[in-house]
Design a protein around this nucleic acid. Sequence first.
DNA 1: CGGCCTTCATGAGACAAACTCATTTTTTTT
DNA 2: AAAAAAAATGAGTTTGTCTCATGAAGGCCG
Lengths: 309, 309
Amino acid sequence: MIDLRHLRTIHALRDTDSLHDAAERLHLTQSALSHQFRELEERIGMQLFVRKSKPVRFTSAGLKLLQLADQVLPLICGTERDLGKLASGTAGRLHIAIECHSCYQWLMPSVDEFRGAWPEVELDLASGFAFAPLPALERGDLDLVVTSDPVTLPGISYVPLFGYEAVLAVDNHHPLHGKPYLEPGDLASQTLITYPIERHRLDIFTRFLEPADIEPAQVRTSELTVMMMQLVASGRGVCCLPNWALHEYSSRGYVTAKRLGENGLQARLYAAIRSDMLQVPYVSDFLLTAKDISFATLEGVNVVSGLAI
Amino acid sequence: MIDLRHLRTIHALRDTDSLHDAAERLHLTQSALSHQFRELEERIGMQLFVRKSKPVRFTSAGLKLLQLADQVLPLICGTERDLGKLASGTAGRLHIAIECHSCYQWLMPSVDEFRGAWPEVELDLASGFAFAPLPALERGDLDLVVTSDPVTLPGISYVPLFGYEAVLAVDNHHPLHGKPYLEPGDLASQTLITYPIERHRLDIFTRFLEPADIEPAQVRTSELTVMMMQLVASGRGVCCLPNWALHEYSSRGYVTAKRLGENGLQARLYAAIRSDMLQVPYVSDFLLTAKDISFATLEGVNVVSGLAI
DNA sequence: CGGCCTTCATGAGACAAACTCATTTTTTTT
DNA sequence: AAAAAAAATGAGTTTGTCTCATGAAGGCCG
C-alpha cells in the first residue's frame, strides 16, 4: 500500500511547498506526483493535503505519513550509504568481541594502529562474557570474535592469529616448584581457579585433566585475572593462563609459571569472522595488523617468560 | 535503490529459509524473488545471501538489509494500520494539550467518559505550559488544544466549548468588598497574581486593565492555583480566575469573588483542532461530551458561585 | 555412485504500474 | 478582471515486475 516512493514524494512536497517544485527535485513531472497522490489517497480513503492553499497544508493523514517518512527515509539512506561503503571496502563497521579478558593486552595495540589506518571504519570492542558471541556474529551484531575454540559453523571462517602455551601459575614456594613440568596427577590435590565459563571450553580440563581422568581437589572461579593472581600468590590455588597473560606477573616474581605436560599445553587463538568479510580490505588489513602486533608483543614473552621448565 | 519490496522479501526469506517458500508467503513465484535478488545484488555490487546452503545464510550486506527491514517494516505496518483506523473513524489518536492548569477540573470527567466510549482511541493529556501548543497542533504532534485565545490559522478550527466569567479573587476582609463590582482603577493599588505567561494572553490585562490604561501596584506570578489562593486568602494580593476555577475556594468562604466591570469579564474556551479532524467520529463525539460535561459541571457554579455582585 | 528430487537461475513474454505529454480546470496574483 | 501559476485529468508510452517454461546445480538415498 504505502511505498517508499510515496514517502519521498510527500517529504519533498513539504520542503518545496508545491507539486511542481517537488516534482523537479525528484526528477519527475508535476503530473506524475498528482497521479501518485490521487491514487494513494484513493487507497487510504482520505485526502493527504489541502490543495487549495499555499503554502500546502497537510491533513492529519498526511502528517502521519510525513512522520513516517521522517523516521524511515533516514534509515534507508543510512543503510544505502553503509552498503555502498561495504561494497567499495573503504569504510564500514568492525564490532569485535573477545572471549577472554586477558586478550585486551595484545588486542589494544592492534586496535590503536588500525584506528589510524582506517579512520572511516567504525570500530567497537566488547568483552564477551555477558553473551554468546558466535550467534551474535552469525546474526551480524558482531563482525569479529577472538576465540581459542574454533567450532565449525557454516559461513564462519577462523583465521589463526598466533599460538601460545597455556601454563600453570603457582605461588613461589609451592611444593610443585621442583618438578621440570607438571603432570595431571599433580593437580589432584590442588585448588584450581578458572574463569567462570563451561568446562568444555577450558583447555586445562579438555586437554590436560580429563584425558587423564583427574579432578582437582577444588575448583573455584574468578572473572578477573588480577584477582586470580592474588589468590595464587597467597597460596590459595593455582590457575591456568596463556603464557603471555601470565608474563607480567611471573616476570616480576609475583607468581611462578609451570609447564603443563612434557611438551607444554600448546593452544592457538583465532579470529572468527563471517566468511564473506574475508574479502573486505579493512578486515584483512586488521587481521594482518593483529597478527603482526601479537607476534611483536609476544616475542619477548616467550623468551623472558620466566617459565620454569 | 532499496525498495520496501526488497525488505519484505529478505524478511520473508529469513523466516522461511527458502526462496520458494518465501515466494509463497508473499504470493509471488520463486522466479520473481530470484530476479529481484539478482537485480538488487547487481545494484549494490554484493551478494546478499549464500545460495548453496540450507538453511540460508546471509552475507554481511544481507544482514545489514535485514536489520533495516526489522526497523522499517514495523513502522510501515503501524502507520498503515493507523491510517486505516483514521479512515474508518473507529479508532485513532487524541493527544490533548490544555493551556491552563485549572482546565483539568472540568476536562477530567470528559476524558474519563470518553475513554469508556472509545477504548480504541489512544488518549493522551499534556499540560501546555512547557511548549507552544498550536505549532505542535499544526505539525500533528497534538490533536486538540484547549485555549481561550482563538488566533486565526489556516487549517485550524476552533470549536467553542463554553463561556465563563473571569472574576477577581480577593480576601474576605478586603477593602473592595463593599463594591457591587470592580473598576480598573480599583486594581491600581493592588498586587496582582497571575500565571507565568505573557500579558497579552491574560484577559485581565488585555480586556480590563489595558483599555483603561491602569497598571497594578505590583504583579507577581504563580504556577499553581492553590498557591495563588493561599496568597490571596492571606491578603498578599488578588488574582483573576475563571469563575468555575474559583468556585471550590469561594464557595467554602476561603476567598471572595468579585465581578470585574459592570457586566462581568465574559470569556470563552475553545477546542482548537485541525479542520479535517472535525469529520472524524470520535473527535466530534469528544467535543460533544466535553461540552455536555462542562455544562453540567459549571451549571451549579454559576448559581452557587458565591459571586458577590 | 547415479538417479531423483528439490532448489535456484535464466530468458522470453505478458501485464500492470508509473511516468510523460498535451490539455483543461482551478487557484493565485496583480 | 485578466494573466499567470499551479494542479488535475486523459491518453498514450515506457519501464519495471511478474509469470511461465525451462535449464542448471546440490543434496539425498537406495
